[in-house]
């Protein structure tokens, strides 16, 4: 039963999740910032656009550290690959990545956060609102993935 629910064991997941948690914890303990990722995709537009929304202080004031944090995320993945650690190739059709990305970007910003902001930082803050959001996007994700598999 357990091996059919966890065909790849639990070690890579527990180790990876702990490393992720330590990254978010380091950011909070050293700078006091909750380490959500998705706001970066709004705050970066403030360099290009002059609309009131993109000029709001919460985006302009955080765009520098969010850019550095994002750079760190990319470098973290690059370091993993450079060390030659185990990794499998991915083959998701481009249209799914494009449409999915659009929904993810719009939805995460409308919903005030993504899997890192609500899922890790919000839950760690014992935010009831974040818990509702996690249940909402997890539910929508599970229904969508099952529906697509059933249609395929």
């Amino acid at each position: 039963m357990l091996s059919s629910l966890f065909p790849n064991g639990i070690a890579p997941f527990a180790i990876g999740g702990s490393l992720m948690g330590l990254g978010v914890a380091l950011l909070y303990v050293s700078t006091g910032r909750p380490g959500g990722v998705s706001t970066f995709f709004s705050s970066s537009w403030s360099w290009l656009l002059r609309t009131a929304f993109f000029r709001q202080a919460s985006l302009v004031d955080s765009r520098n550290w969010r850019l550095i944090y994002t750079l760190g995320l990319i470098l973290g993945g690059a370091l993993y690959a450079l060390l030659g650690l185990p990794m499998e190739a991915s083959h998701i059709p481009a249209w799914k990545l494009a449409v999915g990305g659009l929904l993810i970007g719009f939805g995460a910003r409308l919903g005030g956060g993504c899997t890192s902001g609500h899922g890790i930082c919000g839950m760690a803050s014992l935010s009831a609102g974040s818990l509702v959001m996690v249940v909402t996007f997890l539910g929508a994700g599970i229904v969508t993935a099952h529906l697509l598999r059933w249609l395929a």
Partner: peptide, 29 residues
């Protein structure tokens, strides 16, 4: 916000990507 969460979930279930992993995955090649 809940509508945002639903849209995010649909996109997540469609392509299996969310913002953090998209960035780290790009870095990994």
């Amino acid at each position: 916000a809940v509508v945002g969460g639903i849209l995010f979930g649909i996109g997540w279930g469609l392509c299996g990507v969310c913002p953090g992993p998209a960035l780290a995955g790009l870095g990994a090649g």
